[in-house]
Each structure stands twice: as C-alpha cells, then as structure tokens.
C-alpha cells in the first residue's frame, strides 16, 4: 500500500504530481491511500511515496480541468476516484467526454456540485462595512459546502480590487488589502459581526421588490436553499413576507367586484 500525503484539502498540484508518478508505475487505485495533512495512518503496511520518477503522461486536454474541480469536493474519496479514472483515461481517452458513462457521470456530478457551490459563494457572500480605525474594512462570513475558498479568491479580487476585505469561513480566511491577498486561520461567525446601517436599506429593498401576488417559495428555495440563509440578512424577512402576502393581494383586489382583479405593469 502506498500512502500519498497532500498538503491541503484543495492540493491539486500535490495530487497531480503523485498521480502522475503512480500511474507511470501502473500502481492500481486500490493500492494507494490518499491523506491530507499529518493525520496518522493506521495501516501497517503503508509506505510513504518518496521518490517521484520524472515521467510525462498524456491525458486528454479536458482532464486537468475536471480534476481541478473534483479535488475541491468535500467527498474524502475524491483523490482516489480521480486516480482510478486517470488510469482508465490514459488507455481510453474517449471516455472523458462520455457523460453517460457511470464513472464519468459520478465525477461530472461532483464537478457540477463544486461549480454550483462556487457560483453560490460569488452570489451569497455578504460584506459588512466594519470601521477599522478610520479606514473601511468589509468583512463577510460564509460556509462553503466544498473546499472552494481559494478558488473563489480571484473573483472577489477582480470585483473589489480597491476595497479592503476579508472573507471568513470555518476552513480558513482570505484577506485583501488592495494589493496583496493573504490567508488566515479558520474563523467563527462572530468574527464578522457588527452593525452596518446599509443592511437595513438592503432588506427594505428586498421587501419592496417582492411581489405578493406571485408567491412561490418553492422556486425561491430551489435557487436559495436554506443552508445558505444564515449569512443572508434578508432571509429574516421571508416568513413575514409570505405570511402577509395573501392579505396584501386581497387588499389590492378589494375595490373591485368579485372576479374582477386589478392588474398592472410598469414601464
């Protein structure tokens, strides 16, 4: 049994280097144990992978992209699943583009889940403007489903290049000072607490843009599942908006004869 120690949960480079060396030796996936960090292994026969032979390996050009995403998935078997598929794709490159294939389907779904989590993090991070001396600092708390914190850094740097901001998560934190990105330890939700008066203006907008005559919580939940609600200030309003919607709609219809609703649209 070979043991590969990876530096971090999202250590794609570590996985790639080890996988390349193991595949060159044709070591079967069942003979490799993938570990992150220093956690002790309980396997007697385990030998750490030490020397990495320098060999090139040809894989289809879309494979690294798939592997890059799948490595970020929280499933502990992801490194092993990817390695098993690597061994296959070397001999059967067509398989990579066959989404109906059982093995590919599993990996593509993992990739999709990671992609969705990244997209939702771009959407649902909410900064609070916390005064830090006389300088503004924007701080957000977020709990990603997968190991995507580093993968989302580029998006926030591009978007908020001229703001000082921090994104705190249970897995680690990111800090941007308008020039440099730095990483910090895991944080707690209370580290991002504080009062930002704009939050009240935002929730007011949220309430005003909601149309009580079209209540459809299922459609809302499909795109904004409850697991994200804890970091979204506007979600505190949801139950009240739904509860009051029917009455507001009736009030709009009240001046009209029964069965003659009032209808309208803006420019």
């Amino acid at each position: 049994m070979q043991v590969v120690r990876l530096n971090r949960e999202d250590d794609y480079d570590g996985w790639r280097d080890a996988a390349r060396a193991l595949a060159a030796e044709e070591i079967p996936a069942s003979q490799v144990l993938w570990q992150v960090g220093d956690r002790a292994t309980d396997l007697f026969a385990a030998t750490a992978l030490s020397r990495l032979p320098e060999k090139t390996l040809t894989v289809p050009k879309d494979f690294p992209g798939l592997a890059h995403s799948v490595v970020l998935h929280r499933d502990p078997h992801r490194f092993s699943l990817l390695y098993a598929f690597l061994l296959r794709v070397i001999h059967q490159p067509q398989a990579l583009h066959d989404r109906a294939d059982r093995q590919v389907n599993v990996l593509r779904r993992m990739q999709q889940s990671v992609g969705r989590d990244i997209h939702k993090m771009h959407a649902f991070v909410r900064f609070r403007d916390l005064q830090d001396g006389d300088r503004r600092r924007f701080v957000a708390w977020f709990e990603p489903e997968h190991h995507i914190l580093r993968a989302t850094a580029g998006f926030f740097v591009n978007r908020f290049a001229n703001m000082r901001w921090s994104i705190l998560t249970p897995d680690g934190s990111l800090h941007w000072d308008t020039r440099q990105l730095s990483e910090g330890p895991p944080a707690g939700k209370s580290d991002a607490s504080g009062d930002d008066p704009v939050e009240a203006v935002w929730t007011r907008y949220y309430a005003a843009t909601f149309n009580p005559a079209r209540v459809n919580p299922r459609a809302m939940l499909k795109e904004m599942p409850k697991k994200y609600w804890h970091s979204l200030p506007e979600t505190a309003l949801i139950s009240g908006l739904i509860a009051g919607a029917n009455r507001r709609e009736q009030d709009m219809l009240a001046p009209f004869a029964p069965g003659e609703p009032a209808l309208s649209h803006s420019p």
């Binding site: 997209h119 771009h122 959407a123 649902f124 998006f155 740097v157 591009n158 978007r159 908020f160 290049a161 001229n162 703001m163 949220y206 843009t209 909601f210 149309n211 009580p212 079209r214 209540v215 459809n216 919580p217 299922r218 459609a219 809302m220 499909k222 795109e223 904004m224 979204l232 506007e234 949801i238 908006l241 739904i242 919607a245």
Partner: peptide, 24 residues
C-alpha cells in the same frame, strides 16, 4: 476593477443572482 479606481467586474458569461424573493 484591478488597475482601476472603483469597484466592479463583469464575468462576461451568465450573470449572478444574489438573492431570491419569496415570489421565486
């Protein structure tokens, strides 16, 4: 906004929905 003075970016692809109201 890198290299600029303000905020903002666009991804060039599909946009981002930042919240959903109870009308879906």
């Amino acid at each position: 906004s890198l290299g600029g003075k303000g905020v903002g970016s666009t991804t060039g692809g599909s946009g981002i929905c930042h919240a959903y109201t109870p009308d879906g």
